[in-house]
Amino acid sequence: MKGYNFAYLDEQTKRMIRRCLLKAVAIPGHQVPFGSREMPLPYGWGTGGIQVTASILGRNDVLKVIDQGADDTTNAVSIRRFFGRTAGVQTTTATAEATVIQTRHRIPEKTLREDQIIVYQVPQPEPLFRLEPSRQETRRMHALSDYGLMHVKLYEDISRFGQISISYDYPVMVNERYLMSPSPIPAFDNPKMDMMPALQLFGAGREKRIYAIPPWTRVKSLDFDDHPFRAINAPHPCGLCGATDSYLDEVVTDDRGGRLFVCSDTDHCAERRAAGHVGNDGFKEAAE
């Protein structure tokens, strides 16, 4: 793209972001403030993730961009196009081929490797924000490891609903020190973060925070000994490929209660179907 640096940001900005990333990796789960820039996409639509990706992308990288687990959602398409125009890197929909994966609200089903980096788009980096809106106060709580407020909230859930009622953006303890928001991934995905071989980077553009989980780090979802963490997923197999262990989207097929459940991770589903797996609604796909 004429008149723009590789991957849009100027080199000084990229260096600033990389310094923040290094600090974040050195202190797993700790939120590092950074001088987030206005980007051509709106705040709340992935500017943090985009800035992180722009700062780590090299000419030989292969980039995958997903939103809700799918490569073809409008926002994923928009961001992939953005990097196509500004960096000219090779892009892919295959998780296995990617070196950098930028994601909104899902972790791919396929276990990631040590040579891969996953960049999460984060709307709200502060895990305590619903309980304590003041950032000044939450900074102190993180510094003093004072997370009583969050435990109280979990206690309240159990006393009110009989179970912890958080289903996404489920808070985790990273490296047994920092309370962290994993971004609004479904709780189902939380276990993937624990001891993940890949580097996990988190960018919040509007809130201006970066954080990270280095490879092979302990990540534990908050719970009680007698109310252990449980992942939530629709109790069906994928209608297209039959998978029973992937996170499912619910598609409303008619206004009489008709439903179809399909893998949210489109690459995972396509790979399974290519290998011959068929779900009970597999015939529907052929009809389109």
Binding site: P42, T74, V77, V251, V252, V262
Partner: peptide
């Protein structure tokens, strides 16, 4: 809240996915 639903997702003349250049 739903990936797809009766009537579909109709984008219309939106600026949502333009790049603000």
């Amino acid at each position: 809240i739903f990936k797809d639903l009766p009537g579909g997702q109709l984008l219309g003349p939106t600026s949502d996915y333009t790049h603000r250049l």
